[in-house]
């Protein structure tokens, strides 16, 4: 357990938080890159997944896309970006790579969430004279919300964890703390880096659970 206390003292040393490669700036980079990637991925995947689920089409494509995503190494994609002209575009290569890997789980969960909605309920809503848009907004969307949010949470945690790989191609983020510790045989620093990533992932998860509760309460009252 000595290593954990060493990691803790590394984390609580003020000097390690300051400067260009300090914890503060690495954390900011990590949050920025993950946040941008997650927002972009949601903007692409959620409308598409919900719409396809509403129509009941494209399920096989969504599933195949998730499977294909699993077969492609993040490291390879990042490396391909880094040997292309994209390497001069700052955080763009990392963000694009993360978006590519966050879209499949978001898409699949949005689609499955919509398809899992009880068909009888949808039929009843149609029978009451609701239009397609009304069924989508007032019936399918609220019922699909839990699964969509589950997909969002796992995608968010995955993005935060995957963003560390960016350090392997020299991009910023908390992964750099791990690789720097690795290169200098500083195990407490490696543990500290891993702890920071885990804490960030847990925080993101907690924020999303909280947001979901708030959203649920509002929807329940409305």
């Amino acid at each position: 357990m000595g290593i954990v206390t060493d990691a803790w003292s590394w984390l609580t040393t003020g000097a390690n938080w300051e400067g260009d490669g300090g914890i503060g700036s690495r954390l900011a980079e990590h949050v920025y890159v993950s946040g941008a990637a997650l927002l972009l991925a949601c903007a692409v995947a959620l409308p598409l997944g919900l719409w396809l689920g509403h129509l009941g089409k494209g399920g096989a494509t969504a599933v195949n896309l998730s499977n294909a995503g699993r077969a492609v190494p993040v490291f390879a994609v990042l490396a391909l970006f880094m040997v292309s002209p994209l390497r001069n575009a700052g955080y763009v290569p990392t963000v694009i790579a993360l978006v590519l890997f966050a879209v499949p789980p978001l898409l699949t969960n949005a689609y499955v969430g919509m398809r899992e909605v009880d068909r009888a309920v949808v039929e009843a809503a149609r029978g009451m004279g609701m239009s397609g848009g009304q069924v989508f907004r007032r019936v399918e969307l609220p019922l699909a919300r839990p699964l969509v949010m589950t997909g969002l949470r796992s995608a968010a945690v995955q993005v935060v964890a995957t963003a560390t790989i960016a350090a392997m191609v020299g991009q910023g983020g908390l992964g750099r703390i791990i690789t720097a510790g690795f290169n200098t045989y500083n195990t407490p620093q490696v543990v500290a880096g891993a702890l920071l990533v885990a804490l960030l992932a847990l925080t993101v998860e907690a924020v999303l659970v909280g947001a979901d509760r708030l959203l649920g309460r509002r929807a329940g009252n409305g």
Binding site: A161, T164, I165, A167, M168, T187, V191, G193, A194, A201
Partner: peptide, 14 residues
């Protein structure tokens, strides 16, 4: 499963 792979491999090094 949630431990980042980079951290996992680094942590197993010792």
């Amino acid at each position: 499963y949630t431990i980042p792979s980079l951290a996992m491999f680094s942590l197993l090094l010792p």
